[in-house]
């Protein structure tokens, strides 16, 4: 049993028939072919799958694709525009805000949410904002630096 959904992802409209139980993360990765968002757990506690759904950061492993019919989704693949990295991507690169890179797409999407709501966050606000994203490599320090560096770049 499948149902048809239409979703705008990174500016492109897709229509697919999906099983109701298909998770958004699997829809993005397996059906649409966007493998940037990752799966790091099944309890929605690691944040590696974070994408933007209708302008808000969500864990795409805890949403069914069918719930997103008609929605607008932004994934890590949609962050760079016209061959130019998003300032958050640049900041993660410059500040060595990643090592193995597995959590990075989720970290970047959560950072976007943090800065969208608070363009000049304090260290504490940044760390609080990253609560839902696990990183096992960096100890978070360079990630915090990256978020601060991105905040400093004008034109949020």
């Amino acid at each position: 049993m499948t149902e048809s959904i239409t979703v705008n992802i990174n500016g492109t409209t897709y229509s697919h028939d999906v099983e109701p139980r298909l998770l958004l993360i699997h829809y993005l990765r397996e059906v649409v072919g966007l493998t940037g968002p990752h799966i790091g757990c099944e309890t929605s506690l690691c944040g590696a799958c974070t994408v933007e759904l209708n302008g808000k950061a969500v864990k795409s492993c805890a949403v069914f694709a069918i719930q997103c019919d008609g929605a607008k989704i932004l994934t890590i693949e949609g962050m760079a525009a016209n061959g130019k990295l998003h300032k958050i991507q640049e900041a993660f690169w410059n500040e060595h805000g990643l090592q193995c890179g597995f959590c990075t797409p989720g970290m970047i999407m959560t950072t976007k949410q943090i800065l969208d709501r608070n363009p000049n966050p304090t260290d504490q606000e940044i760390r609080h904002g990253l609560e839902g994203n696990l990183c096992r490599c960096t100890g978070y320090q360079h990630i915090v630096n990256a978020v601060k560096a991105a905040a400093k770049v004008a034109g949020a």
Binding site: R29, L34, T35, G36, P37, H38, I39, T75, I76, E77, M79, A80, L85, Q89, F92, W93, N94, H96, L98, G101, F102, T104, P105, I108
Partner: peptide, 18 residues
């Protein structure tokens, strides 16, 4: 800054599940 990062920050790296 690292040379491996561009693929990782753009979500275009290939892990096993990809």
């Amino acid at each position: 800054r690292r040379r491996e990062d561009p693929r990782l920050i753009t979500g275009t790296a290939t892990y096993v599940d990809d």
